[in-house]
């Protein structure tokens, strides 16, 4: 009887932990394979006289591309205003979405925040 109850109700241990272990094992497998195949190379030592075209990590490419579009006095819009506003908007999501029609509004803002970096990253890749 006792065993039957245990079978009906799934508990954290061992049911869930078993799945978690499998998932973690899977993660590690992927990581180790990638790490062994694509080893990061050492860059050149710093040389201030050699001109260099920097490339940020992939998750900053959109920002690197974004600043191109704000010339002159508006540079600050691309470097600070847009990134900061994106983060704040993302944080405000629960307060933008108050149910009903505002829910749609929140979705639109969220997917815009998603599409903007993606498009900018593509734009970077295309122009290099």
């Amino acid at each position: 009887m006792k065993e039957r109850i245990e079978e009906i109700e799934k508990t954290f241990y061992p049911h869930f932990v078993a799945e978690v272990v499998v998932v973690i094992f899977f993660c590690l497998q992927i990581l180790i394979v990638i790490s062994m195949l694509f080893v990061p190379e050492m860059g050149r030592p710093i040389d201030l006289s050699r001109q260099y075209q920097p490339r940020p990590e992939w998750y900053f490419l959109w920002l690197f591309e974004l600043v191109k579009f704000f010339p002159g006095w508006s540079v600050v819009v691309g470097t600070v205003v847009v990134p900061l506003a994106s983060v704040l908007l993302l944080m405000m999501m629960p307060f933008i979405d108050r149910g009903g029609s505002s829910s749609k509004m929140a979705s639109i803002i969220f997917y815009l925040l998603l599409v903007m970096p993606v498009l900018l990253t593509i734009s970077y890749i295309l122009s290099h």
Binding site: Y52, R55, P56, V76
Partner: peptide, 24 residues
């Protein structure tokens, strides 16, 4: 990204930190 202290690191940090300098 800066810690390897190579060309890539230096210039990416130069650009990244300069962004803060654009604040009026």
């Amino acid at each position: 990204y800066l810690l390897p202290w190579d060309q890539k690191a230096y210039w990416a940090t130069e650009v990244g930190t300069s962004m803060a300098g654009t604040v009026p």
